[in-house]
């Protein structure tokens, strides 16, 4: 193998890794939003991604809605399901503890997955790529245009959330809830409403991840769990609750997976990233960007 083609291959794996990593980062951001407000790890986060992909497939491929219309409609539908989950699975719990709530999210994820299997069956579905499938050739690497859409949407989500949390009073109120729920109530913030909003935001971001990844990786009813594991891994790797951490963690997981599968054995691709996660946690239990004071597994 000559040098040029090796460099091309390396670039190929890196771009692929960043793309997969962007998906993981979106899932990790979803985890963090709910975690920060409620301390719940929402294990149904992966199902939002799965639903995003499958609802989009139905709207676009079956009902022939153009992409640009199907996209927002899908996000709205999945957000609705996120809200429904909050009302049906989280609020009715009479004595909420973090552990019972997490178990409730597992139950919700099973119900969503079961319902998806009934609706879409066990087939994998493809979705039209947003800008076609003609690869762009850069320095010996052939890159799908859809990759740029995925990375672009991560950038848009991060910019949007940064604005939301830094500049709007609702965003600040949400941060206030995560910092001190009692004090937040005492300035008049309705914490239950903020929890609802956190589920809505996470579901919406999950939907975007699902929609943008489907043209690359297809989608089926059974994908949620693995996406949740990788996304959770990314969130923990970066430091649970940290948004920069979610991005760094997600991209690292994606890169390790892609480079590992490319240069080592592709059969173990799911193992590399999780092994890296374990190693980081041995060295730095709070994650890469995590603040030791802020890791709050206190109620377990």
């Amino acid at each position: 193998m000559n040098m040029a083609s090796l460099a091309g291959q390396l670039l190929q794996y890196i771009v692929t890794g960043v793309t997969i990593g962007s998906i993981y980062a979106m899932v990790a951001i979803g985890f963090n939003i709910i975690y920060n407000v409620t301390e719940i790890i929402n294990l149904a986060q992966g199902e939002f991604v799965m639903l995003g992909g499958l609802v989009m497939v139905s709207l676009h491929m079956l009902w022939k809605l153009p992409l640009i219309a199907a996209f927002p409609v899908t996000v709205v539908i999945v957000t609705g399901i996120g809200l429904l989950m909050n009302y049906a699975a989280i609020r009715p719990i009479r004595r909420p503890t973090v552990l019972t709530l997490i178990i409730a999210t597992i139950a919700a994820s099973m119900i969503i997955k079961g319902a998806a299997m009934l609706i879409w069956g066990t087939d994998s579905f493809d979705l039209t790529a947003f800008s076609g499938r003609t690869p762009i050739l850069i320095a010996g690497a052939a890159i799908q245009p859809q990759y740029f859409w995925v990375i672009g949407f991560l950038v848009v989500i991060v910019a949007g959330l940064t604005f939301f949390f830094d500049k709007t009073i609702i965003g600040k109120a949400m941060s206030a809830c995560s910092e001190n729920a009692a004090a937040a109530q005492l300035v008049g913030i309705d914490v239950r409403w903020m929890v609802l909003l956190s589920f809505a935001l996470s579901a919406a971001i999950g939907a975007i991840a699902g929609i943008t990844m489907t043209p690359i990786a297809l989608m089926d009813y059974d994908r949620g769990a693995m996406l949740a594991i990788k996304g959770f891994g990314a969130a923990v790797l970066g430091g649970l609750g940290s948004f920069p951490g979610a991005i760094v963690g997600g991209l690292m997981m994606g890169l390790i997976e892609s480079l590992g599968a490319g240069f080592l054995w592709s059969g173990y691709k799911d193992a590399y990233a999780l092994a890296a996660l374990l190693i980081v946690l041995f060295i730095r239990p709070s994650g890469i960007m995590g603040n030791r004071d802020v890791i709050r597994f206190k109620r377990f």
């Binding site: 009073i169 941060s175 001190n180 009692a182 004090a183 005492l186 300035v187 008049g188 913030i189």
Partner: peptide, 17 residues
């Protein structure tokens, strides 16, 4: 019980939520 990780002005703004 202030919001310790936020700026003073953010605390003040949140007071008037």
């Amino acid at each position: 019980q202030i919001f310790a990780h936020m700026k003073v002005e953010d605390n003040i703004h949140l007071g008037a939520y």
